[in-house]
């Protein structure tokens, strides 16, 4: 009944361990900070990529985010709110850089417009037909997400792809829980409408 929140396979340390790493990092322990980085950098990278549609820019902004986070770690009052705080910083960087410039169009090829190969999770058990269909689906899904209005794309990526709690998303965006809940639902309805033809139901 639940979405693949639980089935996403997302593991990771429990909250207490994370808080311990954060406290160590606040005292200057680079090793602890690297653990935090390893845990959250892929999420931040993919979130930023969804907003800017460029792997190179996404890497650059992710890097800036984590440097800033380390420098401002002392200002984080509640260590349990680290993730929304981290994403808020990443989001701010995205909007600072791209306020006047719309995100680039997503490439449907395996090489994006910056010349980087789009990494894919290749399932070697698929037949050629299945692989082709999978590739087609990826392109459709990429297009669907990219064409979402920015307001909906944000909440969709954070909820459906990053699996953040609604309360955390509201903190990241600085909006009310009710408005975030409404927009998440509307974003999902738009996505469902676009991929309906590909559903097995």
């Amino acid at each position: 009944m639940a979405t693949n929140r639980a089935a996403s396979g997302e593991g990771g340390p429990d909250r207490e361990l994370l808080v311990r790493w954060i406290r160590s990092a606040k005292k200057g322990d680079i090793g602890s900070y690297q653990r935090i980085y390893d845990l959250f950098a892929p999420k931040v990278l993919n979130f930023v990529y969804r907003m800017v549609n460029s792997v190179e820019e996404a890497e650059d902004l992710t890097q800036e985010t984590f440097v800033t986070v380390y420098r401002k770690l002392g200002s984080l009052k509640d260590d349990t709110k680290f993730e929304p705080w981290l994403f808020r910083i990443a989001r701010n960087y995205v909007y600072q850089r791209y306020r006047s410039r719309p995100p680039a169009a997503v490439s449907i090829d395996q090489i994006d417009e910056d010349g980087h190969e789009i990494t894919q999770l290749v399932d070697e058990r698929k037949t050629p037909d299945e692989a082709f269909q999978a590739r087609e689906l990826e392109q459709v899904v990429e297009g669907v997400i990219e064409e979402l209005p920015e307001k909906y794309r944000e909440v969709f990526v954070l909820s459906a792809l990053q699996h953040m709690k609604y309360e955390e998303i509201a903190e990241v965006l600085g909006r009310s829980l009710a408005s975030v809940k409404t927009d998440i639902h509307r974003a999902r309805l738009q996505v469902r409408k676009r991929v309906k033809d590909y559903l097995k139901v």
Binding site: P42, E59, Q63, E138, V201
Partner: peptide
């Protein structure tokens, strides 16, 4: 709605983290 989300989640391109990123972050830190 549930199937649509499963389909999207299964077919979303995910960018992998490259090691140089951490080296750059560490150098600046």
């Amino acid at each position: 709605l549930r199937e649509a989300m499963l389909l999207v989640d299964s077919n979303t391109v995910r960018i992998e983290l490259r090691p140089p990123l951490w080296r750059n972050v560490k150098a600046q830190i």
